[in-house]
Computed example of a mutant assay.
Amino acid sequence: MENDTKVLKLAHGLDVNHSVHQAMVKMGEELGRLSEGKMTLEIFPSQQLGTERECLELLQMGSLDMTKVSVGVMENFAPKMKVLGMPFLFRDRDHSFLVLDGPIGQRLLNEGQKYWLKGLGYYDAGSRSFYTKERPVESPKDLKNLKIRVMESVTAMEMVRELGGSPTPISWGELYTSLQQGIVDGAENNPPSFYLSKHYEVCKYYVLDEHTFLPDVLVIATHAWNKMSDEEQKWLKEASEISIAYQRELWAEAEKRAIEAVMEAGVEVIVPDKSPFIEKVSGFYDAYQQDSTMNTLIEEIRNTN
């Protein structure tokens, strides 16, 4: 019967044109197929139910079942995840996938469980780079006196500070206006987010320094997970894995299209020499010398082949 269908409520902050939203729609379709209609997703995009942090809090309260958040926000609830936001940690995208889909990534997904948050997998959010209004950030010295919007992430704030800028946490929904009004001088994000948010209308310089490969995390509330039968958990896990593989394909295309589109709109896209940036954040890693857990994780990640 229709009313026997288990409906999982999933909210996120992204536009419906974003690859993550499209992949979630796919996950809902797959969940319906695998469960033969016994389970389905109801999706609330575009911050309808709040910011990423607010959605996580709704999961903890039991008012929402699933969400997607950046690792940068998730680290507030699963502290070891902050390792994934360390600048220039991954050699390239393939290296990041090896880590995320392997034992280290899986261990980190379980980190939030004591806060009632269980990670199901990682969507590709590409690499984050700086974009600015007045001048390009081609080397760390160009960040001096610039207010750069960052997520509510201690790691992101530390990184921008280490590179010489002034980190300014502002919610994603308020950023366009903040850039327009000069509350901040720039921000940092991946190409599709830069494009879909229309921030390129205000910021005409995009410097692909690729300082972090910061994935998105698909999260389910432990209260919702624990209420499911083994079979239901299996259906959801399989649907999420199909969704993640699909999103990563879409992402690669979206990234390419986004770069082309912003260039057409008059944005100067610059590929800088990364070595001054890498050198400048060496102190960032020194700060973790006393933290044996973080040090071990960093070494494990760097040695993943």
Rank of each mutant, 00 (worst) to 15 (best):
E2K: 13
N3R: 14
N3S: 14
D4Q: 13
D4W: 02
L10P: 04
N17K: 13
G28Y: 12
K38R: 15
Q48R: 13
L49I: 08
T51Y: 07
R53H: 04
L58E: 14
L59E: 10
G62V: 07
L64Y: 06
D65R: 06
E75D: 03
F77I: 08
R93N: 03
H95G: 05
G105K: 03
E111W: 01
G121C: 09
S127H: 07
R128H: 14
K141R: 11
L143G: 03
N145E: 15
I148V: 14
R149S: 12
A156F: 09
E158D: 15
M159Y: 01
G165V: 13
T168F: 10
T177F: 09
V184L: 01
E188T: 00
N190V: 07
P191H: 00
S193I: 12
S197W: 06
Y206T: 04
H223V: 01
S229F: 11
E231Y: 05
K234E: 13
I242N: 07
E255W: 01
V262R: 02
A265G: 12
A265F: 00
P272W: 01
D273H: 02
D273I: 03
E279M: 04
S282V: 05
G283I: 04
D286L: 12
D291W: 02
T293V: 15
M294K: 03
R302Q: 15
N305G: 01
